[in-house]
Amino acid sequence: MANLLADPDSGLTPAQLAARHGLRVAGQRPSLGRYSGQLWHYRHFISAYAHAKLTASFSNARLGQLWQVLTPLTNAAVYYLIFGLVLEQDRGMNNFIAYLTTGLFIFNFTQTSVQQGTQAISGSLGLIRALHFPRACLPLAITATQFQQLLGSMVVLLGIVVATGEPITLMWLMLVPAVLLQTVFNAGLTMAVARLGAKATDLKQVMPFILRTWMYSSGVLYSVTLFSENLPGWATAIVQYNPMLVYIELARIALLEDTHLLNDSLPLTWLIAVGWSLLAGLGGYLYFWRGEQEYGRG
């Protein structure tokens, strides 16, 4: 019936008709600037979704959000039992409990973000296929959830640090920029693995092994002096640039009076931390954006 009418659009090809009325190709990826703008517009969704995920994850547990504090505590207790008491990895360190828990909590922040990031897309297909929003909201919400979790752990950590006899100093303030840099690093990494995990669903099975290897090379559970003592010089040099080791060392410098460090130079450590955070943050964002039109298809 449309063709019976003498309207000004007759005689145009569909593509010309679409162009004349400003229609766009369905599902096209927006430009980077537009995408960032959309993301900013959806900031409330990101925080609401992060909060909702957090609430939902505890909704079936009787103790509820108390687990946010109990989980890191139990974790720390188990590792202290094995690495501190059974294997005696403290190597004459003054405050091994605080050393261990700092490393553990900081590493756990990245570990959980990455682990959940692999399923950020594949685990929310229902939401993705139902509603249109910039998909980067999902990995960012995961980072935000884990950040909230970290704040809970930090209260526990500071308690442990003080209880084990560390003084409260101005150095503690260094923890704030260190954790913020790590958060940016995590956000980028989470976006990158989210895109990888959207296509390669086997990544979920491989991730735990990668993360465990990473943990052992970040000096979480034992003194970092083990690296310089046992590894050849070039390998130690590589380990020094390990982003997780760097973020953990910064937190240890901030909280502990006397601790074992692999990096001697504090400015260099900060430089590496900033470098990684910029590289992962921007790189991960660009990489995720380039895949935007593929998510949720298939």
Partner: peptide, 26 residues
């Protein structure tokens, strides 16, 4: 809705169409 790519041809839309399906899980 832009959720499946077209193999050939094209789909042009105004704004962003919203798909409301039965399996739209929250």
């Amino acid at each position: 809705a832009g959720l499946l790519p077209v193999e050939r041809g094209a789909v042009y839309t105004q704004g962003q169409p919203s798909l409301l399906g039965v399996n739209a899980a929250l």
